[in-house]
Amino acid sequence: MPPVSGEAAQRRGMLLALASACAFGTNIVSAQIAGQAGLSGPVLVFYRVLIMLALIGLAAAALRASLAVSRAERPAVLVFGVATALVGVAYLSSVSFVPVSVAAVIFYTFPVVIVVAEPLLTPAPFRADRLAVAVIAFLGIALVVGPDWRGLDPRGLALAALASVSAAVQFFAAAGCARVATVSKLFWSHVVILPVTVAILLLVGGFLPVTAFALAPIAVAVTFGGYLIGFVLQILALARVAPGPAGLAFCAEPVCAVLIAAVVLGERLGPLQYAGCALVVAALVVNVTLEHIRRTPAPTRRRA
């Protein structure tokens, strides 16, 4: 996988991040439907990891691709796998205790966390304009999902917060292993995710056989498909774009989720939700524009 460099790579990376966000946007709606049928978040994560490993194994065999990872890059892949497991389990489980809207608002603090932490964990300088865009996008998300904070279960709040922190860690770890081949990264990260998920399932005693998918087959299929597509696109995006701008691109995910819920579940959107959608879209446009402006002056100065 090529390193993050060049205008074309950045542009492709941002498009891949937005496409990944839209694919993941299907997950929370279908996961809620599956959860109402009795399929917990850890169960869904466990089986989708098995499916991903099987598909990666077939792809590696067909392409005769090496799964080797250098010793120096293994810690980043390990952290990436653990963080990914915690994001999936915590976020999908949080909606069993709190409304989707509340879980989404808490979870989508992660772009703000990334922007604040980026100058501390990477050579990237702090950018006040990027933080402002992150805050605007978060406010838009809050308007989109319109959470009701009354009588909330602390377990759901804690799980959503854990998912948010884990997502921030995931983005930085992905940047740390950007040079690892995509097939290897997908395979070994899911090898790490599997035992973490199994341990959580044993802890909560929530394992179910495959036949349980018959309780909500369409919701399960959408959840798995959205994850498989979204995760592959996310891997490709984070190999091309730094954590800060990539994290902001993923603010499109809850907007997609709300729009999907409106179409599939017949949920009606109010004026504030439409205003929130517009605010998030505006923040995404500003984010892309700022990234473009930052990259264009340097070549201009060299020509002068």
Results as ranks from 00 to 15, higher is better:
residue 95 V to P: 09
residue 15 L to H: 03
residue 126 F to A: 07
residue 42 P to M: 12
residue 2 P to R: 13
residue 242 A to T: 09
residue 150 R to L: 15
residue 214 A to V: 12
residue 34 A to G: 12
residue 254 P to S: 07
residue 161 A to K: 04
residue 111 P to K: 07
residue 35 G to Q: 07
residue 219 A to D: 14
residue 204 V to R: 15
residue 155 R to Y: 12
residue 152 L to T: 06
residue 92 L to G: 10
residue 38 G to N: 09
residue 136 I to T: 15
residue 151 G to H: 13
residue 174 A to H: 01
residue 149 W to E: 05
residue 253 E to P: 05
residue 303 R to I: 15
residue 275 A to W: 01
residue 173 A to N: 01
residue 29 V to N: 09
residue 38 G to H: 09
residue 164 S to G: 08
residue 102 V to N: 06
residue 240 R to W: 01
residue 246 A to C: 01
residue 191 V to H: 06
residue 160 A to F: 12
residue 256 C to Y: 11
residue 268 R to Q: 04
residue 159 L to A: 14
residue 155 R to S: 12
residue 200 I to A: 12
residue 263 V to D: 02
residue 275 A to V: 00
residue 281 V to C: 07
residue 168 A to D: 04
residue 223 T to G: 10
residue 212 A to C: 10
residue 285 V to E: 00
residue 270 G to V: 02
residue 264 V to R: 13
residue 135 V to L: 14
residue 46 F to I: 07
residue 27 N to D: 12
residue 86 L to Y: 03
residue 110 F to V: 01
residue 220 V to G: 14
residue 20 S to V: 00
residue 116 V to T: 05
residue 36 Q to I: 06
residue 118 E to L: 02
residue 192 V to M: 06
residue 92 L to N: 15
residue 89 V to N: 05
residue 175 A to Y: 01
residue 158 A to S: 08
residue 24 F to T: 11
residue 84 T to I: 05
residue 167 A to N: 11
residue 122 T to I: 01
residue 182 T to M: 13
residue 14 M to P: 00
residue 94 S to K: 11
residue 272 L to E: 15
residue 11 R to N: 15
residue 71 R to A: 15
residue 29 V to R: 12
residue 17 A to P: 03
residue 231 F to P: 02
residue 299 P to M: 07
residue 101 S to E: 14
residue 143 L to I: 01
residue 52 M to V: 14
residue 214 A to C: 13
residue 94 S to W: 11
residue 287 N to A: 02
residue 60 A to I: 06
